[in-house]
Write a protein that binds this DNA or RNA. Sequence first.
RNA 1: UGGGGUGUCGCCAAGCGGUAAGGCACCGGAUUUUGAUUCCGAUAUUCGUAAGUUCGAAUCUUGCCACCCCAGCCA
Length: 545
Amino acid sequence: MAESVNFIEQIINEELEEGKFERTGNKIITRFPPEPNGYLHIGHCKSLCINFGVKDKYQGECNLRFDDTNPAKETEEFAQSIIDSLDWLGFQYDRILYASDYYDKMYEIAEKMILDGNAYVCDLSAEEITETRGTLTEPGKESPYRNRSVEENLKLFREMKEGKYADGEKVLRAKIDMASPNINMRDPILYRVAHVSHYRTGDRWCIYPMYDFAHPIEDAIEGITHSICTLEFEDHRPLYNWVVEHAGFEAPLPRQIEFARLGITNTVMSKRYLKKLVDEGKVHGWDDPRMPTLAGLKNRGVPPEALKSFCNLIGVSKANSECQYSYLEACIRDYLNANAERAMAVVDPLKLTITNYEGEEDVEFDINQFKPELGKRTVRFGKTLYIDRNDFSLNPPPKYFRLKVGGYVRLKSAYIVRCDGYNTDENGNVTEVLCSYVPESRSGNDTSGIKTKGVIHWVNAETAIDAVIKQYEPLLKDAEYAGQDFSERMNYDSEHIFYGKAEPYLAETMEKSFQIMRTGYYKSCMDGDKFCLSEIVSLKDNFNK
RNA sequence: UGGGGUGUCGCCAAGCGGUAAGGCACCGGAUUUUGAUUCCGAUAUUCGUAAGUUCGAAUCUUGCCACCCCAGCCA
């Protein structure tokens, strides 16, 4: 099948054909430019896949650049978390850069713009600027400071830099068009005064460039050919181009291309809400497994490959869309299915005694992994076992394939057993299931002729280890946080903890959190993708549907 | 109401004037020691809508409708 070419690649192909980048050896360079003001989430993964996808496709380059131009919100911790996430996903950036490293150059360009008569210092207050900006339908009014002389502008701007003015007292504005139908072009602010210490530059600066001024310059400095961003910046493109042109860079100039950001059903993705959940202690932190952050997803055991395949499968377009969560789950399942090792475990242990098992000693079997190439492991069969409580029913509904009194079921990879009875406590709760096994039904060597529709998990009571099994619901939209779109699944904070039993095979990594993914039939994995306990949970879920 | 975008199956999404790819979900059926996997098969006479151009349109033109974004000294 021919590899699909998304619309961004189509644009690049056309430009390449036109010879737009011949002067620079047809090198295509992209960048991933997060602001270190929070952790990356799955939406960023889409952006990463697009930017690094272009890099790979054209054997180009991709920079990781921190867009750190607003010191009030940015921290070293966030920057580090972003680096960690990229490393985890396996994206290899060509260089790591910081917008804050360009402050001198940006300042220089600002002075050039003043010299060229393209920028001026404005004394209007924030409120006054808002008022004179006009509305969607009415043009704005020109600032009374718009026609200051170059000399005065230069002097004032230098004073801004030197700290002579308080926050909000003066700003540097581009001189474009107060009557533009595009509000972004109505003399946008280029620099503001902010006596805030920056996590990298400290107190060296008290004026900071605005995104619309800084971003195009950052791209141009780095020789970015394609500046890929989300749809809400479409209206900023004319300004982006204006800045690049008036800053005096040489062709090929960077080109901004916008795509639709990722939306996932019932998932909070706005950094503002995620931050609120963290700040208010609704979750354990940015890396809480219920969070849609990359760090959270990692802690849930989502393999990075699954995230990337998801982002690649959903495609790139300009249509606002929202993917169903099940699509992500399918990608996770697909990856786990092919790569995860499996072991048996029971979430809610129920004792099962094999009354006719005579052997004094337990018997060990070597069994193949689901994918034989993943090797074998050893399980120990014996007289006393545990099965999951959900795999035994006193009042089985029609089509119940698992254990019921008088019925047969296969203990996976071992023997077929028949349920002869059970014991209860004083309250009538089942405490033990009594079975007899069929000796000639040994797995792989079955001559019993008995067919069972049900196959259940079990663990040996002697050797089983205690397992803490956590099930996490994804972080869902909540009326309180999203303001709308209620759903009956409004349990954004559900974290279910079970104390189960598992094969000793799992012992080595037991200290690490042991999770069951809520992903349809397949549910579990532990410490990344090493183990998948799909079996038990799949049975449970099927029963519920 | 100004400007910028977007509308193809329940959800993503190809398609770029020659007669609707693919994936997810769903539904059949086969295999199965995970009710999983795998495997086959079904599934848009139709592309927001109404006209027009054309031998021929989802693709071109025009009008209309719906939804999203923009009035931070945030990014």
